[in-house]
Design a protein around this nucleic acid. Structure first.
Lengths: 342, 342
DNA sequence: TTTTCAAGAGTAAACGGTTTCAATGCCGGA
DNA sequence: TCCGGCATTGAAACCGTTTACTCTTGAAAA
């Protein structure tokens, strides 16, 4: 019924023209006589011919694929970014190749090799840590790339998109202060991550502006996981003077905070207020719904992709570093602190 | 400092050998003299040469890419599957091209064209509805594929992996019966979906086995979304004799059930018991933690990928249709029904 | 009528590898 | 010493397109 995939040569033979003519028709070149074009198009349609993207890529030098590299697929955080990337890509002819690094340098090197040999048109890197040497290698191979929310130090010439972490840290803290809280803890990412530093700085700024001291005991670093939220909350509650509000570094951490508070018989927001960070879908599903700092993850993915497309097209970027605004989303997990006599 | 990408010809020239010899070294062919191999390898290393996958693909006819097609990226459900696929793919040389159909046939046709012209080695299709004609087209183009959790009618010769929906529906219902519930509602997917039919059949089987009547009022179809869970729960509560337990078709729906019950001042599990379906990460994060039917989504992704790899390798499949076992995961959202005098 | 030019179509090279097949050199056995 | 055979290596074809360049032809310009 059907043979192997047909080639441009077959079409040419059937239509009684030469190969380049078919190619011209396929690429809508103007220098083809209308009658010829018509005839070739009919044959193409009849044969159900689709041209080989591989051969095309070889000749043209572009593969039609862009790589999206994320640390892992364990967090809803990355999925939001993936969704954003997919959204703009689906309007183009490009395909998205998704891969993970798992933060292992071995895997990452392997990935890098694949990216390079894989004839990638460009790459979007969601990196957990600073791997500038890898970026150099990409640059050396002339592969356009954009970094999303890079949490380390970046050169000023690296295209990247992030969020306003400092403002987010400050906004959350100010909100809690405005409710009357005076002992506010912050659970953050590891101190070597830039985003953590920024958020803590925002937190400090709000506190200092309010004339409040910064208690180092209330700054708890860790991973952006649920477990960290749980463990650090337990540690905070064991303090002589526990906080009345906890600002978590991620919504996942906040889920851990919820669990730890429940385990201690404390209620949110009556006994302790909680603010998250990210605003992933889960934040609206729990009870009480989580007040959080919204990080526009899907938008970040979209923005990174748009930037990459310009880079690929050879157009200049308006700005190498783009920071999208975080915003406070008030839900139900915060209230004024319990009265002192409690 | 660095020129364009180096080619095999340059390497050959530098090493003082012919092009085929370099190719042989690259492919680890045995028929190269050790000394020559050594020399060529050194040059390759020095030049930082990586071979073009595109050129390779053209000659060899395989692109090193497999397509993963999902309906959308809105549900954690799909992410679990994606994760499973990625897990086995990361041990291979293959890359994953992720795309969405959004259930629109236009998008889907476009995707199909891309898949075909994109020189895909194979495809994993997570389809929401039966699109057998599309499958035919894939087959016609000799592209190996595996379908995950196809919810419609499939020919017996279509490789597919799913879960034991009937058993899951039955297990959930039996569990609720064992707790003493007698009025058990089920919120399901649309009736045209095979998985919904199966689950409802399992539900009926358990009820009939217990000698209980099946009240059509208690079977509520809808989408697998939170909103559906909310709406249908409201409808159920408005019944003259509301159920004491609700079996939701997805964990997301169950979140809607939680919200509706809370809105009506009812407590889980004291007033109403809830069982979910899927066991996505969120199930453990809410309070009370959701008792649910675990669907091994990541395993399904892994299994589908493994099957696809065999198909690509030309090996025969042990079985065209694989169903992975669902299992009841008991957490905190179920309890015996409230006493009748309540 | 001759020259010029543009449109339309074809020839061949290129893209960067892999593979088939033939050629070479060196070895041992007769 | 001659020959068959094996280990290496190279020349050339090929994968399916695109593209630079050439060629033909008919009409307008001179």
């Amino acid at each position: 019924m059907n043979r192997r995939r047909s080639t441009i040569a077959e079409i040419a033979a059937r239509a009684g023209v030469s190969i380049p003519t078919v190619s011209r028709v396929l690429n809508n070149r103007p220098d083809v006589a209308p009658a010829t074009r018509e005839r070739v198009e009919r044959v193409i349609r009849e044969a159900g011919y689709v041209r080989s993207r591989v051969a095309n890529a070889l000749r043209r030098g572009s593969s039609g694929i862009i790589d999206l590299v994320v640390p892992d697929l364990d967090s809803p955080y990355y999925f939001e970014i993936i969704r954003g990337v997919e959204e703009v890509l689906e309007r183009t002819e490009l395909r998205m190749a998704l891969s993970t690094t798992h933060d292992e340098s071995r895997r990452e090197r392997q990935w890098l090799r694949q990216v390079i040999e894989g004839a990638t048109d460009g790459a979007i890197l969601v990196l957990a840590q600073g791997q500038s040497d890898r970026l150099d290698e990409l640059r050396r191979h002339r592969i356009p790339f954009v970094v999303v929310d890079h949490r380390g130090e970046l050169g000023p010439d690296v295209p990247s998109v992030g969020a306003t972490n400092w403002a987010g840290g400050r906004a959350a803290t100010e909100y809690l202060l405005s409710l009357g809280h005076r002992r506010i803890a912050i659970i953050a990412g590891w101190p070597n991550l830039r985003c953590s530093q920024d958020r803590i700085a925002g937190y400090r700024a709000a506190l200092e502006e309010a004339g409040l001291p910064v208690d180092p005991e209330l700054i708890r670093p860790g991973e952006f996981r649920q477990q960290t939220g749980y463990d650090q909350t337990c540690a905070l509650l064991a303090l002589p003077e526990p906080p009345t509000a906890i600002f978590a570094g991620s919504d996942l951490q906040a889920m851990g905070v919820y669990a730890a508070l429940r385990a201690h018989g404390l209620r949110v927001p009556d006994d302790v207020s909680v603010v998250g960070f990210d605003d992933v879908p889960i934040a609206t599903m729990v009870s009480p719904a989580l007040t959080t700092i919204r990080q526009p993850l899907a938008e970040m993915g979209r923005m990174a992709t748009t930037m990459l497309l310009r880079l690929i097209a050879g157009e200049p970027l308006d700005s190498m570093r783009v920071e999208l605004a975080t915003s406070l989303v008030v839900r139900e997990s915060c209230a004024p602190p319990p009265s002192p006599d409690h």
